[in-house]
Computed example of a mutant assay.
Amino acid sequence: MSRLSTEQLAAVSDEILVDHCQKGDRQSFQMLYRRYQKKVRSTLYQLCGEAVLDDLVQDVFLKAWQGLPKLRNPQYFSTWLYRICWNVATDQRRRFAKRQTTSIDMLPESSSQFAAADSGGLATLHYQDLVQQGLQMLSLDQRAVLVLHDLKDLPQKEVAEILSVPVGTVKSRLHHGRRSLRQFLESQGVQL
């Protein structure tokens, strides 16, 4: 197998990169890492907070590297990687629960579903803080669906695959999570 230049790798599909990785090409994995590192980091940040974020990101990519030889459908690499993210976030939440940690620091980057009408300064920061507080009140299941669907713009079907639940469950969690978040925001004086 010939080695590809960095420029060639940038233009190659995930499926081909995964195939090269499965044949032991570390350069291809580095390219996959560069493609997905920010998305993985952002997802973990929104699900788990900042406290051990670097460790969690490393854990996701270590598990991905170790699991790549067993990945049978390389065309679903991104869904598979988000599934690993979800598993790492769930494991982290269990560790927090064992230590009786009650605060998870989360601040969404943006949300098309819950965007603030005033995009300037303190009003936006206040609104983001309220969204953060509202998300913290949701169950991890509801929070995960809102983060993956509303903040990461993943389709409901892909969210269902990542979380290993039926699409109907995703719809239900989305509905209940949005309703709970809306009620919280309205109780804080936010007009929706």
Rank of each mutant, 00 (worst) to 15 (best):
A115D: 06
A115E: 06
A116L: 04
A116T: 06
A117Y: 09
A117H: 15
D118Q: 13
D118R: 11
D118N: 14
S119Y: 04
S119F: 08
S119C: 09
S119Q: 09
G120C: 14
G120A: 15
G121F: 08
G121V: 03
G121W: 10
G121R: 10
G121T: 09
G121N: 14
L122V: 13
L122A: 08
L122G: 10
L122W: 09
A123K: 09
A123R: 08
A123L: 11
T124A: 15
T124G: 05
L125K: 07
L125H: 11
D129Y: 15
D129M: 13
L130R: 00
V131P: 03
V131S: 00
V131A: 04
Q132M: 13
Q132H: 10
Q132P: 04
Q132K: 08
Q133D: 10
Q133W: 01
Q133L: 05
G134Q: 04
L138T: 02
L138K: 01
L138G: 03
S139W: 01
S139P: 06
L140E: 12
L140T: 05
L140D: 14
L140S: 05
L140K: 03
L140I: 12
L140Q: 07
L140C: 09
D141P: 02
D141C: 07
D141V: 06
D141Y: 03
D141E: 12
D141N: 07
D141W: 10
Q142I: 07
R143V: 07
R143W: 02
R143D: 04
A144H: 07
V145E: 07
L146N: 00
L146V: 09
V147K: 00
V147R: 01
L148W: 01
L148A: 05
H149I: 09
H149A: 15
H149Y: 10
D150C: 05
D150E: 15
L151N: 07
L151G: 00
L151R: 00
D153K: 03
L154R: 08
L154H: 08
P155N: 07
P155W: 04
Q156Y: 04
Q156E: 09
K157L: 12
K157C: 09
E158H: 14
V159Q: 01
V159G: 05
V159D: 04
V159F: 01
A160N: 00
E161S: 13
E161K: 12
E161V: 08
E161W: 04
I162Y: 06
L163N: 06
L163H: 07
L163T: 09
L163F: 10
S164I: 10
S164V: 11
V165W: 05
V165R: 07
P166K: 03
P166W: 00
V167Y: 10
V167Q: 11
V167R: 05
V167N: 11
V167K: 09
G168P: 01
T169I: 05
V170G: 05
V170D: 01
V170I: 15
K171G: 14
K171D: 12
K171W: 04
K171M: 10
S172W: 00
S172T: 11
S172D: 06
